[in-house]
Write a protein that binds this DNA or RNA. Structure first.
Lengths: 195, 195, 195, 195
DNA sequence: AATGAATGAGCCTTCATTCAT
DNA sequence: GATGAATGAAGGCTCATTCAT
């Protein structure tokens, strides 16, 4: 359970992530991971206590990376501007790391998540700026009366779904540009949407 | 591979569905299903070609049931009223069959779905009324310019997410009633939201 | 966990017993058993719930066989005569089934036994005639005041140890015949040993 | 494979012994031992060639310790008195080191012992006083005509079995005191038992 | 059509042993 | 001499699938 070789740990998580994205959580097997990571199967246990610990680390790692990337806005700035900024960040992240987002989504919605023993604190780690933004926007009368989870339903989920639909060819970005999504979400959340 | 005994097939799908809802897709095993359905494991192969075929049938069955229940509106009625009606139907279904919806969602978002060989036509079966409603609403200038998938992002997904959050205790329905969600979604989609 | 094929179950136990006798309990592996029994490894689970259940069955089977063979005396006959008879039966069994006895002994003295969940009732099953003989002999004033376990220490254990020592060439049966053992044990247990 | 640090070797054997006593020979693993002994697993190989060598050392160490403790009688003294003394020593040792005795017994009766390559000379080391006592007692006409192994069957084994039965609650030492065992064994071995 | 015993690949995990540091 | 990461074989067990009955 040591972590002598940080690079190796990274390779393991990368290999596991690839499998989850390609074949789903259910298809993850330690032997596949070991092979993909170029190590012996037993070596996995030097880096993770067991399979669940590895999946948990994988999940939290991706989740934190995304949280960090999508919270690079100013939570004390103008709520409307920061909300738009947040959605841009999410979309930018989706364009570069869509698979990672799908991995997070698959975990979020899988009963496996409970077995991993992810605490609520761990699950929310990194999202504080968004919570803060939500509260400030509502308090300032700029946002409709929403709570964190509701705001995410309109500012995060539609963006990801849009990116997925575009990637799958279900939506033509020429016909429906990302700005349209942003506009719709703003209409929902902002008390006085611009246009 | 005939379907001699329709009741038996139903029992199989019911047993499988229960397991998916309780433990996730990954936990489904044919022996568990057989036992829960009260039949011999080999008999499963009389009704389904293999495990994937059974999962596909399970998925489509639940999806169609939900599609049927949530499209009991008048697709040629007033778009705004029918949109609200649709959201009510979705919420009503979520309150009675949340597990079914989660099953559908777990499938939708898992790479497993591709392995099951679900065609695009099968995936969209039953949703025609919503497609029709979308097109009519947009054409009439009542809806913002959206396509089917985008409308679902605002009229279906937030409702399900809300129901899940309430079920998990993350949202207090006293503080955030369902009407709030409906209002937000209408603000997004309708050109002239009522209030 | 069915037992359709009694012969197969017998073959499994025989194979397992052989391995225990040859290499010890610790060396028992299900794959070895399967190979020796000429079946696939998974098939073992048709006959036994798991490895422990199989070992328990193995232990009890051998123990009961020995108990049955060594209690073919008349528990209500003359205590002295029946005691001698019992020792003869034990020795006869040892000459034909020494390995079985060693298997029983290895189980008895292994911490594994506790994991197998052998109840006290199961452990004593089949020994009732000896318990009865002990009590009658003591009550009649023919035996020294002993309880079951003590009697076994003098009437059973030395016989087995003798048989083992002879088998290992540590004792020459010409020099020390079995009658010598029987005499010593009788001197210990009987109030008035014959010679 | 030198023995630089005698203390470390002792700690290793102590750790291994504890595991054998607690969980049985089969549960011994070198990593467990290393952890319990506070050394790195690789270091074990500095002190022992391999696992078998370690087990053999463990066995012999305990056996010699017991042999030394139970042969603190005067092998040239009065045979009857010394025989009683020997049994007292065995019982005293059992009361303080029952687990050690069970460890020895588990080894003695397991086929594993042969794999360890214990020579006959090693097995008998330390028991010379008892051999000598046996021969003198028989020659003097005080003991019945027994050889070493037979004497042990009556003077050692019943004592250990008694101690185990008491420890397991199978025998109540109030009802059956140790003196009873000593008396029975003396009746078997002595030509003219006292009482 | 229905059964369920049988199969053997594959899963997660542990372990004795090696070797670069 | 000591370390502990790395190895890969082996262990117990589950599972989808087949097939004789």
């Amino acid at each position: 359970m040591r972590e002598r070789d940080d690079d190796k740990q990274r390779r393991i998580l990368a290999a596991a992530g690839q499998i989850v994205m390609d074949e789903g959580i259910a298809a993850v097997s330690l032997s596949k991971i070991a092979q993909a990571a170029g190590i012996a199967s037993g070596t996995l246990y030097t880096y993770f206590k067991d399979k669940n610990a590895m999946l948990k680390a994988l999940y939290l790692h991706h989740k934190e990376a995304m949280a960090k990337a999508t919270t690079q806005f100013d939570p004390s700035g103008d709520p409307e501007r920061e909300l738009r900024h947040y959605m841009d960040l999410v979309y930018a992240y989706a364009q570069q790391h869509l698979a990672d987002m799908l991995l997070i989504r698959e975990f979020n919605q899988s009963p496996v998540l409970q077995q991993l023993g992810v605490t609520r604190a761990e699950a929310y780690a990194g999202y504080e700026p968004i919570v803060q933004l939500t509260e400030r926007g509502v308090a300032a009368g700029v946002f409709m009366p929403v709570v964190f989870d509701v705001l995410m339903s309109y500012a995060y989920t539609p963006v990801v779904e849009y990116a997925v639909a575009v990637a799958n060819g279900l939506i033509d970005p020429q016909t429906v540009p990302f700005d349209r999504i942003k506009m719709l979400s703003c209409r929902a959340i902002l008390v006085h949407p611009k246009a």
